[in-house]
Each structure stands twice: as structure tokens, then as C-alpha cells.
Nucleic acid binder design. Structure first.
Lengths: 233, 233
DNA sequence: CTAGAACTATGTTCTAAAACACAAATATAA
DNA sequence: TTATATTTGTGTTTTAGAACATAGTTCTAG
């Protein structure tokens, strides 16, 4: 009972965006249907081809949304940080997932059954417009990404990814180290290149005093250079 | 007056998807605020950086949505056919257009002021869910496109584009010729390759008896091969 | 704590596709 | 119509980045 109560409290304070748009009735319904699930590092959250059932909200941790392409080669499509919603696109498009999601690190996720949520949307204009906005922003990012990934060269793509990771997950206390622990392979999949190329280009950046690396920890030394490299492609 | 009346008739029959979801009041409001605009072949409909003002619905013609990338290189992001909606994403994302739109051929477009339409959405759950679905489908296509454009080789990308054009605009009376008149450059920009490569690969397809070309008219001879080439990348 | 697996690093080779160059064919405008 | 611009076609050169090979290093599961 105590645990259950704890989850109630989490819900109201952890869904800041949508909670304030809901009516009391909707809030009750949400309380009694939302589930909190924990995922271990590298655990899969959902798979390609699966049926979407829940709107997911990341309370804690870091998630990657990815897709396997030609010859099973994986491409990271987007990354999720707290508090962001994910996993709902496929449901609204009335299709199975075309992506998969997995936890970069231990995660806490709130699952809300889509049927219930769709009903909220149908009767709550503010909530509907909020999700229209989320989808619109993501679609704009996807459009931009098509151009960046296809037209920029390896250096530009990697520089962009590093800046993107910094924007998404922020920096550690030193004000320079990117606050995520990523394998070179993930960095490569995010930047559309081979792992070798990610490693090599990272080394080049170190030699050019743009970053320093300590294992998987990446410290940004010259952010302006990174921006420039990203811009010129 | 007669012309004006004609436009009223067009509206109710030309917006099949949304018209049936609207209340009488909304319909009246739509009638008095929607405008019909004609665009000449190759005319620009909106530009990157511009402020989005209207929801657009293509009644007649063909439209390309494109984006200029590194070094001004253009990338076609999506193509629009009658009756599809476009131009609304940026407004909902509360940002200027990140793409531009132009007419492949002479077009008739219906413009609906976004402020009015947003109000409809806020009070009409079905309409809101309809647009949530449109955005969700487009976002799924964009995600798929990232993988296709970055991982497939030139042949696979061109094959995919030809099939995509066939799906979008259909075939002429002969049941084989793709019903669109595209410059090689546009075909290249759609497939993320140089014009030279589009021309060369098209020639290869002709030699392999997969298609025939007569100027800009492309006839599909062996669709199964195209599917196969697209699939294996 | 240890063994095996996974990750990181770097050098070498190979290839797809871009860049370039030019000619021929079409389209567009004066 | 003729002249000019644009588009199409093809051969050649160059290069970015993939593929491969191999070794050292770091995880991690039992």
C-alpha cells in the first residue's frame, strides 16, 4: 500500500507537462492505470514489429530509439531523456513499431495504456495540441536529420553527434565532460558510420585538441571548433 | 459571386477527410476563410525560414517538399499528391519552416489560416486525432527514410525512389509509365545522389531491361527486379 | 577472481560514388 | 527562327569511407 501510494505521488509530480492539463476524472483514471517499470542497463523496452500498447514516459535514465537497416546494421533514430514521452507514434499511426527501444542505463519508465490516453486526447484539446506539437517537433528534427546524415562527412556527423549528446544529456560537474557513457559502436550508430571510423575520428579530434577522451568519457575542450566542423559538414 | 459559389462547392467535396468531422459552425467558418490559390509549374509555394500561416491542402497537381543542405545541395524530403495536407508541421512546432515547397507542375491549393484551424483542433477530438495520425505516419516514414538513404547503395536508393513515385502518383494509361515528369536532378535529389549518378544508374537499369526511358518518361518493365534491388540495398 | 567475450585502437586495402570534363540533345527566350 | 541556357549522357580521375586484419584493453558473467 505504501509503495502504491508512493507511485501516486510520483505520477503527479513526474508528469509535469500533461498532469496540469488533465481533469480530476482523468487524473484518477491515469492513477489507476499507469504502471511504473524499471529496466536494467541495455535491457530492451520494445522491439521492431511489436504491437504498441502504452504511452511511455521516461522518469529516470537514458533510452535509445533505434532501427535495424540493410544487413541488420543498426541506426539510432533518436535518444530520450527524462522527462520525455516515447513509444506512442506507432500506435497513433495504427501500425506496429518500426523501431526498437533499449535502455542506455538503468531506467524508470511510466507506462500508460494507449487506449485510455487516446480517449483523453479526444476530449482534451490542450492535451491533443501538446502531442501534435511533440510530433511536429520530432518530424522537423527527422527532416533535418535526413539532410545531416546524408550530406555531411564523417567529421561533421561525429561533431554534430557530440554536440547533440551534450545538448540532450548535459555536462558533468566539471562543465566539460558529456554526461553519457556510450560505446564507440553506439556513437557510430548515432552518426551513421562504422565503429572504426568513429574511433579514428574521435582520435583525430583528440590530436586536434578539440576533445579529450578517458575511456568512454568524452570531454569537450573546444566547442566552437565542434560547431564549426558540424556546420561545414 | 458565381466563382465564389463554385469554391464553396469545391471545399465540401474536396476536403473529404476533414469535412465530415466538422460541425456546421466550423464548416461556415472554413468556407469564409479558406482561399484557393493556383501555382504555376516550378513556382515556389513557401520558403525555408518563412513564417507558417496556413494549412495547405493540395487539390490538384504535384508538390515537392525539399530542404537545402550542406553547400546548398537540395534534398527532397517528401512529395505531395492530391488530396494531401502539408505546410502545417512548422506551425504546430511553433517554428519557421525548415523546408521549402514548390510545384512540380501546375497546382491548385486550398489555404486555411492556421489560427482558425488550430481552434478547430482544440475543440474537435476527431480532427485532432486525424492530424496526430497524419503526423505519426509521416514521422514513421521519415525514420524509415533515414535508414534507407544512409544505408542503401545508389542502385537500391534509385530503385526505391522509382517505386515510391509509382506508389505516389500512379501509372499512365499504359499501366507501366510512371505518371510524373521529373528532371534527372529531381530524381537525384529525391534519392540522395548526384545527377550524374542518377543518369548513369537509370541507363544501367535500361540495359538490364528493368525500365525503359523516353526523355523524362520512365516505364517500369520489371517491377519485381526493382523491388528486389530496393530491398537488398 | 578468472576466462571469455566484447570493446577499443590502428594500420592496410579496396571500392562505391563524388568530382570533373566535355559533348550532344533539348528546352527556353529574344 | 536563331541563339542561349539547361538538361542529358558518358568517360576519366579522385577520394572518402567501408572492409578487413590484428592486437591490446576492458568488461562481465560464472
Amino acid at each position: 500500500m505504501l509503495t502504491r501510494k508512493k507511485e501516486f505521488i510520483e505520477l503527479s509530480s513526474s508528469l509535469p507537462d500533461i498532469w496540469k492539463m488533465l481533469t480530476d476524472v482523468e487524473r484518477d483514471q491515469l492513477r489507476s492505470n499507469a504502471r511504473i517499470v524499471h529496466y536494467k542497463k541495455n535491457e530492451l523496452i520494445y522491439l521492431e514489429e511489436e504491437e504498441p500498447k502504452d504511452l511511455m514516459c521516461l522518469f529516470k535514465g537514458k533510452v535509445k530509439i533505434f532501427k535495424s537497416g540493410v544487413g541488420g546494421r543498426s541506426q539510432i533514430i533518436r535518444i530520450i531523456r527524462p522527462v520525455q514521452y516515447f513509444g506512442y507514434r506507432a500506435y497513433f499511426a495504427r501500425e506496429p513499431y518500426v523501431t526498437a527501444a533499449s535502455a542506455f542505463e538503468a531506467c524508470t519508465v511510466c507506462l500508460i495504456p494507449m487506449e485510455i490516453f487516446e480517449n483523453f486526447l479526444r476530449h482534451n484539446g490542450d492535451l491533443a495540441l501538446f502531442f501534435i506539437q511533440l510530433l511536429s517537433v520530432d518530424l522537423g528534427i527527422a527532416d533535418q536529420r535526413v539532410v545531416n546524415l546524408t550530406q555531411k562527412h564523417v567529421r561533421g556527423r561525429l561533431a554534430e553527434s557530440l554536440l547533440f549528446l551534450k545538448e540532450s544529456y548535459g555536462l558533468e560537474e566539471d562543465g566539460a565532460t558529456i554526461n553519457i557513457y556510450l560505446a564507440r559502436e553506439d556513437l557510430a550508430n548515432l552518426s551513421n558510420m562504422t565503429t572504426s571510423n568513429a574511433i579514428r575520428t574521435l582520435s583525430n579530434f583528440v590530436n586536434e585538441h578539440i576533445i579529450t577522451i578517458d575511456g568512454r568519457k568524452i570531454k569537450i575542450i573546444d566547442e566552437e571548433r565542434l560547431h564549426k566542423i558540424s556546420r561545414i559538414g
